[in-house]
Computed example of a mutant assay.
Amino acid sequence: MRLRGAKGLPSKYGNQRVGGYDSKRELKRATELALLAKAGEIRDLQEQVRFELIPKQDGERATHYVADFVYVTKDNQKVVEDTKGHRTPIYNIKRKLMLYRHGIRILET
């Protein structure tokens, strides 16, 4: 079974993979953040950072959220960012679990 977005299958929401990113929007934001990092406005820029939401349990896999970007601002605030074109029901649950479990409110761009 091939995953959506793999060669030959359309993306579920019409996104096109561009330059190694899941969408044109994500590529644009990655470029913007790279420029901000180079200018010293942000630091410690990371991409595709995985957070555990629910640990592995008997017979069940762990549940994770993968943030598009994580970085630290000039005033030492950690930012977890997701480029969103469409909020899915699964994303909404994971967003709430991030706040509940890690105390992190996701910035949506």
Score class of each variant (00 low, 15 high):
50 R>T: 06
11 S>K: 03
5 G>Y: 00
32 E>V: 14
30 A>I: 06
54 I>N: 07
95 R>E: 05
59 G>D: 04
62 A>P: 09
61 R>T: 12
48 Q>K: 08
57 Q>R: 15
34 A>R: 15
7 K>E: 12
55 P>N: 03
24 K>D: 10
100 Y>I: 11
70 V>T: 03
41 E>L: 14
60 E>W: 10
77 Q>R: 15
9 L>M: 04
8 G>L: 06
105 R>H: 12
83 T>W: 07
13 Y>R: 08
26 E>N: 06
3 L>S: 15
37 A>W: 07
70 V>L: 00
60 E>V: 08
63 T>Y: 11
31 T>Q: 15
52 E>Y: 05
35 L>A: 15
51 F>K: 07
2 R>T: 11
92 N>C: 08
31 T>C: 07
103 G>P: 13
40 G>N: 08
29 R>G: 00
97 L>T: 03
55 P>F: 03
24 K>N: 11
27 L>K: 04
84 K>H: 06
52 E>D: 09
76 N>Q: 10
34 A>N: 14
32 E>R: 14
50 R>D: 05
76 N>E: 12
68 D>P: 03
56 K>Y: 11
60 E>F: 09
99 L>K: 15
77 Q>A: 13
87 R>F: 09
33 L>N: 01
82 D>C: 01
41 E>R: 13
91 Y>N: 02
93 I>H: 13
10 P>W: 02
60 E>R: 15
24 K>T: 14
